[in-house]
C-alpha cells in the first residue's frame, strides 16, 4: 500500500499528473527494471520495456484500488509487459538453447554452432544460462527462482494453470542442468567455470 503521506500525490497522479506519478514510483524503479531485465535478458530492452510498463501503470492508475500492495500491482504490470515484449520479439527470434539443441542434432557433432552460441551469448554463469532458455521456461524460472514468487502467484500473473507452471519450472531447471554440464559452469561461490 502506498503510505498515506502520499495521498496527495496519488490524487494528482490519478488526475493525470505525470510528475506526481514519477515521484510515487521512484523507489520502485530499480526493482521493476531488474524484473524486466531478467525476463527480457537485455539491459537495453529492459530500459525501454520497464519505462513502457511504468507508463502503462500511469495510464491505468485508476484501476489500482489500494487494496493490494502498490509494488505488487506494479510488478504485475511489469511482468506482463515484459512477457508481451518477448512474445513479440520471438517472431524476430534469436538463437536460443532450444534451437541450439535441435541444430546440434541436425548437424551431428558439427561444433560450429556451439562456438557461435557461446561467443554470441557469452554463457559465463547460471544467470546467462537462464537468459538462453526459451521464453516459456525463462519466465517461470525468473519469477520462481530469482524473484521468489510461489506457484500460485506465478499462475496469477502469467495466466498459466498451476500444473503448467510446475512442469515448466522442472523442465526449465532440467535444461539449466544440461547447460551447466555443457558449458561446464561451476557455482558462483567456487569461482567461475569458463571466463
Amino acid at each position: 500500500m502506498i503510505s498515506s503521506v502520499n495521498s496527495g500525490l496519488i490524487k494528482k497522479a490519478r488526475r493525470g499528473d505525470g510528475r506526481a506519478f514519477s515521484m510515487l514510483i521512484e523507489n520502485h524503479e530499480r526493482f521493476v527494471f531488474n524484473v524486466v531485465y531478467r525476463i527480457t535478458g537485455n539491459a537495453e530492452d529492459a530500459r525501454d520495456v520497464s519505462q513502457e510498463a511504468f507508463i502503462k501503470a500511469f495510464k491505468n492508475f485508476e484501476s489500482y484500488d489500494e487494496s493490494s500492495a502498490f509494488s505488487t500491482w506494479l510488478y504485475r504490470i511489469a511482468v506482463n509487459t515484459a512477457i508481451d515484449y518477448i512474445r513479440k520479439r520471438k517472431k524476430e527470434n534469436s538463437i536460443s538453447f532450444e534451437d541450439y539443441i535441435v541444430d546440434e542434432k541436425n548437424q551431428k557433432g558439427d561444433s560450429g554452432i556451439e562456438e557461435k552460441v557461446i561467443s554470441k551469448e557469452g554463457v559465463k554463469n547460471i544467470i546467462s544460462a537462464v537468459n538462453m532458455l526459451d521464453d516459456e521456461f525463462k519466465t517461470v524460472i525468473v519469477l520462481r527462482d530469482m524473484e521468489g514468487m510461489d506457484y500460485k502467484e506465478i499462475s496469477d500473473i502469467t495466466g498459466l494453470p498451476l500444473g503448467t507452471v510446475k512442469s515448466r519450472l522442472s523442465r526449465g531447471r532440467g535444461k539449466l542442468r544440461q547447460m551447466i554440464e555443457k558449458f561446464n559452469l561451476k557455482p558462483e561461490t567456487e569461482g567461475r567455470g569458463r571466463a
Binding site: 505525470g18 510528475r19 506519478f21 514510483i25 524503479e29 526493482f31 527494471f33
Partner: peptide, 21 residues
Amino acid sequence: YLPLPDDFHNELTEKLIKSGK
C-alpha cells in the same frame, strides 16, 4: 539486482509528464 541505467529516472519522468499532457 543491477543498478539502474544512467538517467533512467529523468527520462522516465519526462515520458510520464508527456503522456499526462
